[in-house]
């Protein structure tokens, strides 16, 4: 296990989940960068639907494990973001709540950066 991740281990995390925690932290850097690229693409007026679908998929993955690995707030925020994005995508108007969703994405990115 690398020393950076070891310092960040949440208290009480079972031994059996420590390797999973390491993988989650390692994936987080790439996920932050990918979400930033996608949000910039949306701001530039590029294909918003594709970008938001991918952000929802990343949020889905974060929501699936963050709580179990000791970050319940990040898990809850990612899940809320995933649900809102999917609702707007399903409604055929992916940007209808963009002005309120964009700050939530920024908050999630800040929380993820704090793990590194």
């Amino acid at each position: 296990m690398d020393s950076t991740a070891a310092k960040k281990l949440p208290a009480g995390l079972p031994d059996v989940l420590q390797a999973a925690h390491q993988v989650f932290i390692n994936l987080t850097t790439d996920r932050i960068l990918r979400i930033e690229v996608l949000t910039q693409a949306i701001h530039k007026g590029e294909d918003a639907a594709s970008a938001l679908i991918e952000i929802a998929q990343i949020a889905h993955k974060i929501a699936g494990v963050a709580g179990t690995l000791g970050y319940p707030e990040i898990g809850d925020n990612a899940r809320a973001l995933e649900q809102k994005l999917k609702a707007d995508i399903a409604a055929g108007d992916p940007l209808r709540h963009w002005t309120t969703i964009a700050p939530e994405i920024e908050t999630l990115l800040d929380d993820l950066e704090a793990l590194l």
């Binding site: 079972p14 059996v16 989940l17 390797a19 999973a20 993988v23 989650f24 993955k61 699936g64």
Partner: peptide, 17 residues
Amino acid sequence: DDDRAFQMVLQGTLAQL
């Protein structure tokens, strides 16, 4: 599952059980 982290969480929890 396509998320490696979730795979490991699942595998670890299953081993515990």
